[in-house]
Design a protein around this nucleic acid. Structure first.
Lengths: 123, 123
DNA sequence: CAGCATCCCCCTTGATACTG
DNA sequence: CAGTATCAAGGGGGATGCTG
């Protein structure tokens, strides 16, 4: 369990910092994007989120579940079926995420160019 | 330089993922919040961003500079004066950040409670 | 299918010391 | 003041193998 980074709430001075941990992982955000469109099975998520390992996917989903953003539905079939879905709380995050998403679409080229220029000068 | 995580643009399949690296660090976001209100000296930032080491602060500022979100102004005084300021591109990120910030204020208590409940059940 | 367990490496971060 | 340099430690994350 220590590998899951669910540290026992050590009080941090800054409120925002801990709040931002909610979305600070790249996998978190990418998984979240997939769940915006409805419930998804574990294997679907694994297929759709490119490059994620099952370890990181599971870890990310547990994190989201712990934060109350995602519910896990287990259906007692053989083989097992597990679906993940945004909670009402999770739904409230869609809009902020969408705004960030739009910024990305609009300005990422500028970031790329800035990076290239920076790397050029500091060669 | 390898310590600075400025890897040489290995092409990743997902576009969003790389874009999100721009804001995915907690220090990045916290430093960014400080700069929303105008230019700040290095020592000011170090004082205001609680818990950041000078190494991480420098690293974060370089990252933001490389991404074109921040400019670094050096004044040839003794002792040296260095100010950091958002660029026009950086300014466009304020609104998305603010939205995220507001979500944090509105819902972080819910997240806290969800975590406590989750940890209770999985004791 | 949907995971948990382990091993292991490397990268990030912290700590410390030094400088223009 | 505003950094850079170096070293050491820790943990995040990949790879692999196993299960209900």
């Amino acid at each position: 369990m220590s590998e899951f980074g669910m540290s026992a709430e050590v009080e941090s001075p800054c409120h925002y910092r801990r709040a931002l941990e909610v979305v600070s992982s790249k996998w978190t955000v990418l998984v979240f994007y997939e769940l915006e469109f409805g419930k998804r099975r574990y294997s679907d998520l694994k297929r759709r989120v490119e490059g994620v390992t099952q370890k990181m996917l599971t870890q990310t989903l547990r994190q989201l579940e712990r934060d109350g953003l995602v519910v896990r539905h287990v259906y007692p079939t053989v083989p097992p079926t597990v679906e993940y879905e945004l909670t009402p709380l999770g739904l409230t995050l869609i809009e902020p995420m969408r705004v960030l998403h739009q910024w990305t679409d609009a300005h990422y080229d500028s970031v790329r160019q800035a990076r290239m220029a920076f790397d050029q000068e500091n060669a």
